[in-house]
Simulated assay, not measured.
Amino acid sequence: MSFSVNTNAGALAALQNLNKTSTSLDVTQTRINTGLKVSSVKDNAAVYSIAQTLRGNVAGLNAVNNSLDRARSVVDVALAAAEATSDLLIEMRELAVAGSDAGLDADSRTAMSEKYTQLRDQIESIVNNATFNGRNVADGTNAISAITDDNGTSTISIAASDLTLSTLSLEDSNLITYGAALPSGTPVSLAGTTIAASSDSEFRAALVNAQTDNGGNFGGETIDGSTGVTTNNVGGTPTVEFEEGLKTYLGLTGADYSSGRVDGYAYDVTFSGSTSLYLVRDGASSYLTLGNPAGGGSADSSAASEQAVTAIDAAIDSVNTTLSTLGATANRLDIQKQFAGQLSDGIEVGIGNLVDADLAKESATLQAIQTKQQLGLQALSIANQAPSTVLSLFR
């Protein structure tokens, strides 16, 4: 054994071990402080990279939840509007059925019609205000979608549901007058014959074909296929003979038919008291279109109430279909949100399995390392005392 005051091998060894212990202590303390066994890429590059990818997936699912929440809110508002509309239609139907009583006096029918009109207009107000975050599914203006995956590539689409009065064919509905305006282009079927005016030219062509099939004219009147203008055999204003000819072509007979004229241009063919086809010549443009000018009737008649019952029944069916669609969509959104939450939780657990520290284990490790550190300090102290033994050789 050699003695040297320049080199203390024991102290160097003790210092190396003490440094390793201090490094281990730093790692353990970091894990305890952060709760993570992999808190940076230096701890484990591969695991850290996987964890970061999974964290990105979780962030994407957070966006999915936000999108689903927004869509669910829009649908909730639309559902509320549809339910309110359904309730109002039921109340309107009650009034319409009551108004169909021929024994009602004019004042009572007028009062009922005023209430009916207020309920009808309230539907439009509800539908127009069924907006959430600038989106309205109930008035047909907005279709929306919600993302369902963390890439934003998969969506649930929600089609617009139009509950406006015009779509429900109740825009001019009341309990006093009947024959309210129909939208231009509405197909009307009479006696098995459909004339669909999806465009002016198609409507004119349909009339020309009807005239040809009838032997070239209707009661001596002719139709200009390029303009749709009708004239009688002396070139004057179209006469009721045109109506009679059209009635014959459509197969309408007896009480199934009534004629009327509005401003000299409109022809009213009524089938079974409810279905109407109006042929209206536009004086400004001189062509025929499919339309329905404001009809007649009076407060003494139950015809408008009877017509309203039919229209409301159709509207109730339409609203019920919308309610079913919106309800199913809301349920699907709820299911998707629940799944997205479960998926996010599952990924979070997976990340935890990769990077979370076992704090019970780390606590035991800390105690052991602290003890090793104290022992290392003692060993270094003993090793540092070794060179002083050389002095005893020179006494």
Results as ranks from 00 to 15, higher is better:
residue 72 R to T: 04
residue 367 Q to E: 14
residue 82 A to S: 07
residue 239 T to V: 03
residue 15 L to N: 13
residue 252 L to N: 01
residue 266 A to I: 11
residue 346 G to F: 12
residue 9 A to R: 13
residue 53 T to I: 06
residue 367 Q to F: 02
residue 19 N to F: 10
residue 38 V to S: 05
residue 187 P to W: 11
residue 240 V to T: 12
residue 139 D to K: 05
residue 121 D to T: 03
residue 60 G to F: 01
residue 22 S to L: 13
residue 350 G to P: 00
residue 18 L to E: 09
residue 211 Q to V: 03
residue 12 L to S: 14
residue 120 R to M: 05
residue 292 N to V: 09
residue 279 L to S: 04
residue 264 G to A: 12
residue 303 A to P: 00
residue 295 G to Y: 06
residue 145 S to F: 02
residue 124 E to I: 05
residue 392 S to F: 15
residue 314 A to E: 10
residue 190 L to T: 00
residue 176 I to V: 14
residue 118 Q to L: 14
residue 150 D to L: 02
residue 28 T to S: 12
residue 30 T to P: 01
residue 25 L to M: 12
residue 94 E to I: 02
residue 388 S to G: 10
residue 377 L to H: 08
residue 149 D to F: 01
residue 387 P to D: 14
residue 261 R to S: 13
residue 196 A to P: 02
residue 170 L to E: 03
residue 37 K to V: 06
residue 244 E to K: 14
residue 127 V to D: 01
residue 393 L to F: 14
residue 101 D to K: 07
residue 144 I to E: 02
residue 298 S to Q: 11
residue 232 N to E: 11
residue 285 S to P: 01
residue 85 T to D: 08
residue 98 A to G: 08
residue 184 S to P: 06
residue 103 G to V: 01
residue 75 V to W: 02
residue 177 T to G: 09
residue 370 Q to T: 13
residue 323 L to S: 04
residue 38 V to Y: 05
residue 323 L to Q: 11
residue 238 P to A: 11
residue 93 R to A: 05
residue 208 V to T: 11
residue 369 I to N: 02
residue 306 E to K: 08
residue 65 N to A: 11
residue 308 A to T: 06
residue 177 T to N: 14
residue 182 L to S: 13
residue 265 Y to N: 13
residue 86 S to P: 01
residue 374 Q to A: 15
residue 343 L to T: 08
residue 279 L to G: 05
residue 6 N to I: 12
residue 224 D to N: 13
residue 394 F to G: 09
residue 319 V to D: 04
residue 117 T to E: 07
residue 258 S to T: 15
residue 317 D to M: 08
residue 25 L to V: 07
residue 288 L to G: 01
residue 54 L to I: 00
residue 219 G to D: 10
residue 318 S to P: 04
residue 10 G to I: 08
residue 9 A to F: 15
residue 246 L to P: 02
residue 164 T to N: 10
residue 48 Y to G: 03
residue 348 E to T: 14
residue 217 N to T: 10
residue 169 S to G: 08
residue 20 K to V: 10
residue 328 A to W: 10
residue 317 D to F: 11
residue 78 A to N: 04
residue 332 R to Y: 05
residue 144 I to V: 11
residue 255 A to R: 08
residue 273 G to V: 08
residue 245 G to L: 07
residue 307 Q to K: 10
residue 376 G to K: 07
residue 290 L to C: 01
residue 43 D to V: 06
residue 249 Y to T: 06
residue 387 P to K: 13
residue 220 G to L: 15
residue 36 L to F: 12
residue 32 I to V: 12
residue 239 T to H: 09
residue 147 I to D: 00
